[in-house]
Computed example of a mutant assay.
Amino acid sequence: MLITYHSVTGNTEKMAEGVADGAGAVVGTTVNLKRVSEVTTEDLLSADAVIIGSPVYFGSVSGEVKVFLDNWFLKYGVFRDAKMRNKVAAAFVTGAAISNGKETAMLAIHAALLMNQMVIVSPGGALGAYGASATTGPDSPGIDEKKLESARALGKRVAEFAAILQRGSRT
């Protein structure tokens, strides 16, 4: 499983680590945790599942995450031949306010994943206020244990779903 993210303040990175902890708790899951700038074509092709995390800027993903997703066509070459088809995918975001556009940022990631014919696994709960997102502004607790638990739950859910698909593809 590839868990990739962009983080400036460390909040999205901390959530990514929580997602990785949850995924790693599922027997048989190998986790590859990388910044989006470090991901290679082989990382994408070898992953059964991809989870992407981004901070929210002006109601959307960070520029780095947008470039990463845009590169699926040109740099990585996985879009044209649907090389990510039927792989499991999910997203998580962090933002400075209660909403701050977390819902729209997460949907932007989902749109890119769906265009690559991937299977989206939801984090559970509402996309922005609950689920796999965190409020990190000056009046918030930042990445507290409650948010880390939601990140772990996302990682675990995606890893379990990917394992089910892997078992099914062998029969």
Rank of each mutant, 00 (worst) to 15 (best):
A82I: 09
T4L: 05
E17S: 07
R167V: 14
F58H: 04
A105E: 09
E160H: 08
L44E: 00
V26C: 02
N11M: 07
G124F: 13
A159M: 05
A16H: 04
V88E: 03
M1R: 07
G128R: 08
S62Y: 04
D43L: 02
K14Q: 06
I164V: 14
A23R: 01
S150H: 06
H6V: 01
N116H: 14
G131M: 11
K146N: 14
E145H: 04
K156I: 07
T9E: 08
T29W: 03
S169Y: 00
F58Q: 01
S169F: 00
L148I: 13
S46N: 13
N116I: 10
T94G: 07
T104I: 07
S7P: 12
L69Y: 04
K147Q: 08
S122W: 04
G168T: 08
V39C: 04
L74W: 10
V67R: 03
G124I: 14
L114D: 11
E64H: 08
A25N: 07
D139R: 11
L74N: 13
I51N: 01
H110Q: 12
V158L: 05
K66P: 09
T40E: 06
T12Q: 00
K66Q: 14
E160G: 09
G28P: 00
R167D: 15
K87T: 10
P141G: 15
I120Q: 07
V158R: 00
A108L: 08
A112M: 10
A105W: 05
A49T: 03
N116A: 15
T136E: 07
G59I: 00
I164M: 08
F161K: 04
G63Y: 02
L44W: 01
F79W: 12
I120W: 10
T94A: 11
G18D: 02
V93D: 03
G142L: 07
K146A: 15
K14I: 03
Y5Q: 03
A25V: 03
F73G: 10
M115I: 11
D144E: 12
K66Y: 13
L154W: 04
G168V: 07
G18K: 02
N32E: 04
N86R: 12
E38C: 08
S46A: 12
Q117T: 14
S54R: 00
I98G: 09
R35Y: 06
T136R: 04
A23E: 03
V61C: 03
P123I: 10
S60K: 11
F92E: 01
R170V: 11
G10K: 07
V36P: 00
M84C: 13
K146E: 15
W72H: 08
T135V: 15
A112C: 14
F58V: 02
A162R: 05
S99L: 12
D70M: 13
A132I: 09
T41R: 08
T4G: 05
I143F: 03
V158I: 09
K66F: 11
A20L: 05
A108K: 05
S99H: 15
A25W: 02
F58W: 06
